[in-house]
Amino acid sequence: MSNPDSLKFSAENFDAIDQIVNKYNSDKGAAIMILQQVQATYGYIGQSMLERISQLTGIPTSELFSIVTFYSQFRLEPLGENFIQVCHGTACHLAGAERISEAVQHVTEAKPGHTSPDGKFTLEHVACLGCCSHGPIMTLNNETFARMTPEKVKKMLKQKVEDKGFVEQSQSQSRLTEGRELSE
């Protein structure tokens, strides 16, 4: 994922888009489903991908662009090596989500909604993950951590910051673990 531009002309990558469109295009109103599947495959939706989808579906690129910019789920930038979500639901807000976000930003230098300059971390604020009794909630590479504190954030991410190797994005089912044990 180091250089996404080099990937976009690869025939193999367009194949995946072609397959997705073929699978869903017979459904009425499939635009959002197609975009969701494309993002699930590539981690983001780039300009050239929108153009390819437009070619295949006949939906104008401008309309597709208006959809991906309307819904917060869609990302126009590639993901960093590590994907962090900090829940900013009401319960998490009251429990100190802001401090968790700040700690993440401080350690990773990633701004909310963006990827850090070194490409290692993408930080996203999410509205609510529905684990309100265990806030503040944070996810790291789809693993959920409960009752976070800025100290736990530091401890957790420090290792990833130092990690020079490529951390593969887990495509499998979300694994969830408790943050509590990280404090020790």
Binding site: C131, T144, L176
Partner: peptide, 11 residues
Amino acid sequence: ASCGIAAGAQK
């Protein structure tokens, strides 16, 4: 459920 899993129920 998700909240149980977040608290470590899968383990």
